[in-house]
């Protein structure tokens, strides 16, 4: 068994413009996904939009620079994630393919295990 992180990347503007009905439908779809895959889910969260993000980097002298916004500006931004358990990449793709992401898509990344 391996663990995979399923990153949900979606267009934030589409989310911001979505009406209450669409948002409610999305919540219901995530709930259905959670129920259908309960035995495989190890965690997951929805994130506030990137406008609430704060990025931290160190400059050459080692000083911490604090900036407003996401680490990388992209049209589709990280908006939430699931941690899933799967036998292999095929199973991980089968589960991640059910994650609702109407305004974008998902990225599957194997979680590294250290001895």
């Amino acid at each position: 068994m391996s663990e995979y992180l399923v990153l949900i990347y979606e267009n934030e503007a589409s989310w911001a413009n979505a009406d209450g009905e669409t948002a409610g439908k999305m919540m219901a779809e995530h709930e259905t996904f959670g129920k259908n895959n309960a035995s495989k889910l190890r965690g997951g969260n929805a994130l506030h939009p990137t406008s609430s993000a704060t990025s931290l980097r160190r400059d050459a002298s080692g000083k911490l620079l604090i900036t407003d916004g996401a680490f990388a500006e992209t049209k589709e931004a990280l908006g939430g994630y699931y941690v899933i358990e799967a036998a292999d990449l095929d199973e991980a793709i089968a589960i991640a393919g059910q994650v609702p992401a109407p305004f974008g898509g998902v990225e599957v990344r194997p979680i590294r295990v250290f001895d």
Partner: peptide
């Protein structure tokens, strides 16, 4: 190796 791409014949559905 890291993403564990399986070494087998895919399921009938795939």
């Amino acid at each position: 190796k890291t993403s564990n791409i399986p070494y087998r014949v895919p399921t009938q559905a795939d």
